[in-house]
């Protein structure tokens, strides 16, 4: 059986958006017959995450939340994975939807056997319209940005390679920018800037030909 391990902290507005938008990935994995292992909300702690990674051999690891070059965070910004524990990603494809992680954490994980580590080399921007704070799926400013980043795990689940998943996200970025740049809708200006910036920092380390199975 193919296994997805996903973390979804939700202690602030940004992580709440990621939490809600990640549901589509869980649904897709389950539709494809995968076993989904979740560390949600306050369970996204270092102890919980590392225990689950040790016990359940995940094929695909999808971290949502905040990060920096060498650490991925979980609930209330607790570091759940860093360069000292990056060996836990051995034999996985990993995607960190967070700032900066691909730079050092990605390199460290790949050096220790992670097949491919996809993430962002810079800050990950999410534009939000205030009135949709509690209903993120209706937020037209956030939608393009989160659909583009969702494209990566959705592609991996559909058995694309890591580089194909990144290319697929870039193609969707271009499609959205082509559409939004001609729009007179003021909210689209926020989405355009974030789409462009996130695309600049999207990268992967390791084997671009890696795929599940």
């Amino acid at each position: 059986m193919t296994r997805l391990f996903i973390t979804r902290p939700q202690h602030d507005k940004g992580t709440y958006y990621l939490y809600i938008w990640s549901k589509k990935i869980i649904d897709s994995a389950e539709d494809h017959g995968w076993i989904v292992n979740k560390s949600d909300g306050p369970k996204a702690t270092r102890a919980e995450v590392q225990s689950r990674l040790e016990k359940n051999s995940a094929d695909f690891v999808f971290f949502n939340g905040h990060g920096n070059e060498s650490e991925m965070s979980g609930h209330n910004l607790e570091t759940i994975l860093d360069e000292s524990s990056s060996h836990l990603l051995k034999n996985t494809i990993t995607f960190t939807r967070a700032c900066n992680c691909v730079v050092k954490l990605g390199k460290s994980a790949v050096d220790k056997g992670c097949k491919s580590f996809i993430g962002y080399a810079g800050k990950f921007w999410i534009p939000r319209i205030h009135k949709f704070e509690l209903t993120p799926l209706k937020d037209m400013a956030a939608k393009p940005v989160l659909e583009v980043s969702n494209q990566i795990p959705l592609s991996i689940i559909k058995n694309c390679t890591a580089s194909e998943a990144v290319d697929s996200a870039r193609a969707l970025t271009i499609k959205y920018i082509s559409k939004l740049i001609l729009s007179r809708e003021p909210y689209n200006r926020a989405a355009l800037k974030a789409l462009s910036q996130n695309d600049d920092s999207l990268a992967y380390k390791g084997n671009g030909d890696a795929k599940i199975g």
Binding site: K13, H66, C99, K123, I126, I129, P186, A190
Partner: peptide, 10 residues
């Protein structure tokens, strides 16, 4: 627009 915020990680 003024009613837009950006979430920028931590």
């Amino acid at each position: 627009p003024q009613d837009v915020s950006f979430s920028i990680g931590k």
